[in-house]
């Protein structure tokens, strides 16, 4: 067991690592959906943030509506099939925030370049589009075109990015900050690893032996991770594989009856963000309002994969005893 622990509260993690004006990756695509962190950022009144994520949903919408955001680098923003993200939409239409658009591939390639420590990523996508022609606040640093020096093909070079802080919600971590996740990751891996500092909220804190028995699930070893926050239901109303399902109902309500209504939106923040201390308070409010049964319906029934054989290997490899 480690002597030092990276475990802290979300309040402490955000106030220690997130400063006004920073660039943040926050996993907001519902896969590894870092909702608890986004709400804490709103509660602490962070300002002038630049956010980056490939296809953010309602937590970016809420951060925009709460006035935390100056700029967004993205590919897509809405509440998926549930409806448009109206806070985002209106803010762009009124010129309250600036956006820089990529395709999902382009945006994720940008994070991947940053994560790998290279200044750009060549991709064969984004050609023949306004995405490549129209550059907003990144200007000439958005991307370049070039002819491949080997094949003479046209290539798009996507500039890399290293956000000041990357925030992600995962299944589990140990006290040393080794974080593990599974499922379809969308852009979460490159988003998390591109960060200069990584904050991970997790559903469970486990011992290091559990991490070591499944090393392929490790997204980032502890040396990359600054803070771990134990935050059950941290992705709600998004999902986390094996822990909780999307709360389709809650998300439908937000997209259709809250996002486009100034009064309702303010009421939403007052109730679900400012009106609670932390994620535990948020979940307590959910149970109080809608009942424990509705919450527990979001727990998936277990479906375990088969254990795989990694093998153990003997110290004596010359087999002289035979």
């Amino acid at each position: 067991m480690a002597e030092e622990t990276k475990v802290m509260t979300m309040k402490d993690a955000i106030s220690k690592y997130v400063k006004d004006g920073m660039t943040l990756f926050i996993s907001a695509v519902w896969a590894n959906h870092a909702a608890a962190a986004a709400h804490e950022i709103i509660r602490q009144g962070k300002k002038d943030l630049t956010l980056i994520e490939s296809s953010p949903g309602e937590i970016f919408d809420q951060m925009v509506g709460a006035g935390c955001v100056k700029r967004i680098i993205l590919s897509w923003s809405a509440n998926e099939a549930f409806g448009p993200g109206y806070r985002f939409r209106r803010a762009v239409e009124k010129g309250l925030i600036e956006v820089e658009d990529y395709s999902n591939f382009g945006l994720t390639a940008k994070l991947m370049a940053g994560a790998m420590g290279i200044p750009f990523m060549p991709i064969m996508s984004q050609k023949g589009s306004s995405i490549n022609e129209i550059k907003a606040f990144l200007g000439e640093n958005k991307l370049k075109h070039m002819e491949c020096p080997f094949t003479k093909q046209k290539v798009t070079l996507i500039s890399g990015i290293n956000p000041d802080v990357s925030i992600i919600h995962c299944q589990r971590a140990d006290l040393e900050g080794n974080i593990q996740t599974w499922g379809s990751l969308f852009s979460a891996k490159w988003g998390a690893l591109s960060g200069k500092t990584i904050i991970a909220s997790v559903e469970e804190i486990v011992d290091t032996d559990t991490i070591r028995r499944n090393p392929e699930l490790t997204l980032a070893p502890g040396f990359r991770v600054a803070a771990v926050v134990h935050e059950p239901w941290g992705a709600h109303p998004g999902h986390l594989f094996g822990y909780h399902d999307d709360d389709r109902w809650f998300r439908y309500m937000y997209a259709n009856f809250v996002s486009d209504d100034d009064g309702k939106f303010k009421q939403f923040l007052d109730e679900w963000v400012y009106g609670v201390e932390d994620r535990a308070g948020y979940i307590a409010n959910y149970i109080k309002k809608y009942g424990y049964k509705r919450l527990m319906r979001l727990k998936p029934k277990p479906f375990y994969s088969d254990p795989i054989n990694y093998g153990t290997y003997p110290f004596d490899t010359m087999h002289m005893d035979i």
Binding site: L74, W76, F88, G106, M124, Q126, G128, A136
Partner: peptide, 26 residues
């Protein structure tokens, strides 16, 4: 799937590309 009107002062802002650009390319 990005905007009606000028990109910098859109009449309507839509969600954006998502994967659409990449699907349509390849």
């Amino acid at each position: 799937s990005t905007c009606f009107g000028d990109y910098f002062k859109p009449d309507v802002r839509f969600p954006g590309s998502g994967g659409a650009h990449d699907f349509g390319t390849f």
